[in-house]
Design a protein around this nucleic acid. Structure first.
Lengths: 211, 211
DNA sequence: CCATCATAGATTATCTATCATAAAAACGGG
DNA sequence: CCCGTTTTTATGATAGATAATCTATGATGG
């Protein structure tokens, strides 16, 4: 699930800070001072700066020259944006992945599905959700597309955690995932694609109930 | 057109190296040694490392830990991948941008169109092509989507320049662009979107003639 | 004799530590 | 409320240390 980029200290720092941003431990707009981070991770400021660049590329922080970086803001407009991008790209990925599906792939999708149904906490649910969507698209073997989707998934998780903190969260079975899997088992790729697109846009509507 | 990130040394280095990669001055798989780059830009290795991270995020170089970075390879599979991603995302962007079009926007699109028709070199044509597509999507006001499209445009330019070097290039008027503009003037957004998607996939077919 | 493996040296990425500079923020009179 | 000073902090330079990789040479075994 993780890329194992933790071989270098910069990667390790980026991973740790990124996790804090996604989980909400670091709130939006919080400033990140490089000397403080360097001291915390027992390193110098050079790898910290590299980690900041990585996080900037993931849109998890925003950097303004000569003023350092701060946690990226979390506004409702980006919810819609991320949902639309995810819907468009995941459909492309699924269309390319579905013809390659083996029964092992479908089994892995189902595992993620039931893990999501059995989730007790938001964290467990989000992990299973990420696994489900990842299993859907991974066989497409398009590295750049998968990297983009990874970044969008991360941003989406951040939104989910923020909403859960604000509005509470209770486990609910994801019927959407189940019907997508059914369509895939029936080899009805186009139906699965349109179900997937609608599913992703549904998450957006869940985030902005009154809009 | 450029974001003016050249306020910092790392940004300046990343911009310069990126331009060389896109233009083909730096061939695929060429190694980039940080001390060499630092010496060339009269800087230390610290901003060079940051620049490498930026280029890595743009998929212009690939970094392997403890072995430095090299120019990203250029294979035919990524041509298809980039075209599919661009087609999907530009359609989303255009669908959000088109309702906001003013006559000034349409005029800017037409300027880029005729500049493409009058282009004498690949470089001129590519610059006009980028301007055309950018003008199409910019009014959507979705920063993350626009950043993604910028990166895909860059990768696409790199492919265009590589093909031009291999197979020659001669100016040709882009009828595709004209009919897209016509559909937009007629406020037929859905037609413009499907024309745009087909246009982008056409570029892919142009890159892989026999496939 | 050739192939495979091992070891030594050179190269280079990575990181630390310290310092210098400059820009922005904070503060404090007028 | 504005202007200058101080403090903080990002940015970058430099020197050096460590470790991983690459290269090349030599040894061992078939």
């Amino acid at each position: 699930m993780d890329e194992g980029q933790n071989t270098t200290t910069a990667g390790r720092i980026a991973e740790a800070i990124g996790e804090r941003i996604i989980s909400g431990t670091l709130p939006p707009d919080a400033p990140l001072r490089q000397d403080h981070v360097a001291h915390e991770f027992h390193s110098s400021h050079v790898p910290v700066r590299e980690a900041f660049r990585q996080l900037e590329a993931q849109h998890l922080v925003v950097a303004v020259p000569r003023r350092g970086v701060r946690v990226a803001p979390l506004d409702t407009k980006s919810v819609k944006e991320i949902a639309e991008m995810r819907a468009a790209l995941e459909v492309v990925a699924l269309r390319n992945a579905a013809p390659k599906f083996t029964s092992a792939h479908l089994a892995r999708i189902e595992v993620a599905l039931v893990e999501g149904d059995n989730a007790e906490t938001v964290e467990e649910f989000e992990m299973a959700n990420r696994a489900f969507h990842h299993a859907l698209v991974a066989p497409c073997a398009m590295p750049r597309l998968l990297a983009s989707l990874d970044g969008l998934q991360l941003a989406n998780s951040r939104l989910v955690f923020a909403m859960a903190r604000n509005a509470g969260w209770r486990p609910r079975p994801s019927q959407d995932h189940r019907v997508i899997l059914q369509a895939l088992r029936a080899r009805n790729i186009e139906q699965a694609c349109s179900l997937l697109a609608r599913h992703i846009q549904t998450i957006e509507r869940l985030a902005l109930p009154a809009a």
